[in-house]
Design a protein around this nucleic acid. Structure first.
Lengths: 200, 200, 200, 200
DNA sequence: AATGAATGAGCCTTCATTCAT
DNA sequence: AATGAATGAAGGCTCATTCAT
């Protein structure tokens, strides 16, 4: 009960304020539990952070595997699906993902960094599998840089999420519409881009 | 004299440890000045940070403007040049740029966030100018998403810089070679990608 | 069952880490019982400590009384026996005795201090009885300071046990031999010393 | 100024409550300075403790050396002087010395333990020098255990200081008289004891 | 222009103990 | 008889900043 409340509060607060910016006092207060419960359940703040990332990414990985291992869809269809999936995933959890990548760029806490990177790489391998399958089936070109394609998918989505620049480019409508507009545009763009680059 | 030393020390330390991770004590010690000098010259840590970013980006912007305003090159050539330029720029100052984007994603410090974003947008407008010029001259397609192309340039370079994943993918050679290999591969990929997407 | 396990764990842990240095959590873990059991059985940490000391000293006192009340031996023989006995006793339980005297010197916990001192004094009175008997029988000098002799017996043994200096003075042999060497030397010295001081 | 105040407050508080029992908050309050000044001047609580011991023992060592190196006195006179000196020294700073020996028996903090022991051993060597000189000059017996004599001097004084038992043995007079009585009796006893044991 | 001392708030963690079951 | 969850206080320490000189 308290454990869940701490995880929930942590997911929200870490996303909002970052690791350093979130004090255990604030965590305990937001979770409505005593400050000592963080140590009691998780040992320390760092381990709580890892537990939150673990919970979040485990769910994501599971969902992703289900999708990418299905055999009925073509590589292009799978790629399009993954694009849609990741755009929605990242933009629906903007602050959390931003925070994750932010902490990832801090050379401090090397062990944690490697741990998270391993988890993310598992997901990246799924995408790589689709690209290689497409090359095998001759539906994608042979001289493409698959690593870079993966970098592009996450790089573009993160960049949009990060800078929030599109909010400035489209300022005619209200916030909710903007959000939908950005997602739609992002999905369309990535598909167009990769169809132009990948397809034979 | 002391002021310069503080700026230099700050540029290095903030890049290495981030804003939160850099203490005023560490700054003073690294600069070889008294701890009170930071407040004396810059008021507080945040303002020192802004001064450092200002100094760094001003230099970059100046260099970029010189390049993009030249009239002899074609849009494609200009695009290719900007790609080369940014890959070298960001990868040559990896830690600083990572830190910059990291701090940018923290909702805290809103004013600072907007200030930095304004600076970066100036540079982005240069790139946008090239894309629009290409459309004008009918050398680029008409139905392209120019905002997204900009997001892609920075997104992909940052993603490579950020995760350092390529270091894992190419581990046959020594570090210096890897660095060159990554840059070369990144430049080639981005050109191939945009030529496929942009050119009529 | 749990109570015994706690007492055993406490005797070992308090000897090793001292009163302050032993946490209730560590006690519970070492005893393999729930943390709340310490409060359940003993009320609080302090009372547990007293219970342990009580158990330990009661056993010692019983052994000592058996010995000192025997009537066949002369005062000198009795004294020699007590010296042998105490050297072995204290050096065989070095850490426990060190801890006991250590806690005794803390002005805090006055009640506990007095309680322990009463117990120890009972044993001291046995030794004093021997000395007075020796004076009565004219085998010891009349102008000796019996209180100080008692202080000397315990003071010297404790000092050796405490500083572990003899380990540094005799470093030719292995640890087990050192231990035996120290005991032998200590017994011989104390007998020589008191024979010189006490005997008529 | 603050540094001195912290050292003074520390000397008093550590003697009174021990290392663990003295909080940095209490130290700061007793010294009338801000809590951060302990870190500012000494780094941490442990280093403050070492600084205090250093200051105290340095003064003692200096005094002792002056005395033991004088050439006019005989070995017996020197021994008697050292006995008088140490009885006064330890009983005048009872709580401090008790605390010192107490902390010395804690296996925790091994480095600190060794450091203090080294300092104390320097003083012990002075006493050992006197005993060896006495043997050289044939005024002391040849078959004495000099290490044990040293253990005895400190052991007996510490034991008296520690248990405070004499307070119970002599309870006819007021406290100040007791103190003097104990010192006088202790000095006399130690001289009698060693004269009996050492002299040819 | 520059300093070292000083501040007070805040950090994370651990403590002995008690509660509800 | 026994438990795991929960408590609130206190622990040592570091922080950015300011003061007096």
């Amino acid at each position: 009960m308290s454990k869940e409340k701490i995880l929930d509060a942590g997911q929200h607060l870490f996303a909002e304020k970052g690791f350093e910016g979130t004090s255990v006092r604030a965590l305990a207060q937001a979770a409505g539990v005593n400050i000592a419960m963080i140590s009691y359940y998780f040992g320390n703040k760092e381990s709580l952070f890892e537990a939150i990332v673990e919970r979040k990414t485990a769910y994501t990985r599971q969902r992703l595997e289900e999708v990418s291992h299905q055999t009925t869809a073509s590589p292009v269809e799978k790629l399009d699906f993954v694009i849609d999936y990741y755009v929605d995933l990242i933009l629906s959890n903007r602050k959390f993902h931003l925070m994750l990548y932010r902490e990832l760029t801090l050379a401090q806490r090397k062990d944690f960094h490697d741990h998270i990177l391993d988890i993310l790489q598992k997901n990246w391998r799924e995408l790589q599998g689709i690209l290689l399958e497409g090359q095998d089936k001759k539906s994608f070109k042979q001289d493409i840089d698959t690593d870079m394609v993966i970098m592009t998918v996450f790089g573009v989505i993160n960049q949009c999420s990060q800078t929030g620049i599109l909010r400035k480019l489209i300022d005619k409508q209200d916030v909710a519409d903007q959000e939908q507009e950005v997602r739609k545009r992002l999905k369309q763009y990535l598909k167009d881009l990769f169809h132009a680059y990948l397809l034979v």
